[in-house]
Design a protein around this nucleic acid. Sequence first.
DNA 1: CCCCGTAACGTAACCGGTTCAGCCTGGGGG
DNA 2: CCCCCAGGCTGAACCGGTTACGTTACGGGG
Lengths: 347, 347
Amino acid sequence: MKRPTIADIARRAGVSKVAVSYALNDRPGVSEAKRAAIKAIAKEIGWRPNSAARALNGAQARTVGLVVCRPARILGMEPFFMELISGIEGELSARRYALMLQVVTDHEQEIEAYRRWWGEGRIDGAILVDLHFDDPRVTELQALTLPTVVIGHPAESGSLVPVWSDDSSAVHETVRYLSALGHRRIARVGGLPQLVHTVLRDRAFDAVCEELGLTGHTIVHTDYTGEEGARATRRLVSSADRPTAIVYDNDIMAVAGLSVAQEMRLDVPGDLSIVAWDDSPLSQVVRPALTALSRDIPAYGAHAARRLMSLIAGDEVGGFEDEAARLTPRGSTAPPPAALSPAAALQ
Amino acid sequence: MKRPTIADIARRAGVSKVAVSYALNDRPGVSEAKRAAIKAIAKEIGWRPNSAARALNGAQARTVGLVVCRPARILGMEPFFMELISGIEGELSARRYALMLQVVTDHEQEIEAYRRWWGEGRIDGAILVDLHFDDPRVTELQALTLPTVVIGHPAESGSLVPVWSDDSSAVHETVRYLSALGHRRIARVGGLPQLVHTVLRDRAFDAVCEELGLTGHTIVHTDYTGEEGARATRRLVSSADRPTAIVYDNDIMAVAGLSVAQEMRLDVPGDLSIVAWDDSPLSQVVRPALTALSRDIPAYGAHAARRLMSLIAGDEVGGFEDEAARLTPRGSTAPPPAALSPAAALQ
DNA sequence: CCCCGTAACGTAACCGGTTCAGCCTGGGGG
DNA sequence: CCCCCAGGCTGAACCGGTTACGTTACGGGG
């Protein structure tokens, strides 16, 4: 049972292929009577346009590509990606666009996937995530002239359209808040140091700590896993002048850090305050619930997708700065232990 | 700058399109010398096959479809899906297959997506998840003759190829373990009651409780969210003869249940034992760490993908029963409080 | 009554590959 | 020395739509 084609419809309707094409695409050139008749036949025999044939005439693929370069296992754990994807999907599916997804292990493969998809006419646009400094993918995608939205800071997105949020101000808000509580030694457990947003957060962290005269600030880098978050916490907490507050770059690490602290008989927030970047059920469910930097990640993805749609439509599209993450104080932050607080120090 | 076609190569090489086609596809019909020359030119001008043109000749799309019918927000929270997808991806990317993903809100749309993709020649196969009883999607996919693997029990997968795991034995193991610890009143907080695996777990749970003479067993159904997990826990724990152990259908609910119990000043595991279905960093990171039913979800997805690949290749493919989840005891399970244990009852 | 504009349709070509049926050429066997 | 066959290659057709353009019929204005 072969798939019906417009030729089949044309035969049954006693008209030419062209008339059928016009009728089914709601274009002028056929009488309303014939249009209706043709549509009825099309529906009856279950005709569907063959996208390959359409694509051959330069039509759109109605698909956008997303390649994620991370070990598969991390992907499953990181709520960020899935939320981002669900946000993108929400926007795409409303416009009947599909998402082409591939997980790879290095940038070479990632570039290759984009090249292939674009070269083969399978995608109309792409979304780039996990921006690096001097990212080779940016150069490549620019060269391909593939409509692309970058989830990342405009400083490194070249001529591609960036969608980003002001992490710097979120860092400021967090450190100011901790400082106001009385903390003087704050540590930051950051993510992968090659990612642009990690470095921008690092810089902002250093800057605001200097500005507030907080001397004992430290930064540690990790791969976002709970294990490394736990290890970093263990090291920080057992150091000579241990921090009284730690800010983690994701919730997985913050939760891991929390349990390490509790294992080591530290009271959270009494002895140690904890802040998690990116809110999630995870942060809210542990005891104490974690003070977190919340943002609407699905909305973030939706913005990127919407930008990409415009870009594909041929519009001039500027970058978009999404809202910065908002600090949501919960039970994991409090003034530092008296002995370590500025008040005690002043006595 | 247009994309180069085989006609361009043919012109430069001074041969016909056909010779180029043969050469590039490593098929006999051209001398090795010409083949090499043609390949060199193709590489030089950066030629890529146009998949649309190939598809028009009945070639494969090298893509499989997956439609997930859940609210986008739940998707982001449930580690199961992302892990499943990463497992599927691992297998697909090794074979240079891509994954076409779409998130929808009802089965109508889901069926429509599969129909469209298949009808338009965009996918070679599909993966069906969240199997229901008398699932309309099974009927539809069978009718489409689209190669499909179902993640779900063979009893409901019709002629489609099932990949499943024996949840029943995992339920048995869990209940036996709790019973051996001395628990007599065990509750189960299950997932969506319309899903096949929920019902199969329910049945197994009832059966083994009867078998062991555990009288006070209860089952509650939820939508897998932490909120409903918490609510169910609150209700169970404040009932007249509260259970001494609760088994949750996912980790999100188990963790939510844990924090409800702790809020209500119940000691876990002293007053209440907790078991989570599906292990995750989440379960290991809370205090006490949760006793969990672990399975390798990425491997599960990989099996499904591999099956689907064979199916697409035209092989006869049987279903596959993956390993059952293994019970991993951790700190959240212990004998029930003495007053409630069988030993106390016998005195 | 004729001319011309236009709606309604058809014909042919095209998109970029693949496939099929030949057409040469050269070399080995009879 | 001729015939046949295989290897190497080409022209034309085809996949299923879209598009440019040509044709017909009809109707209104001059």
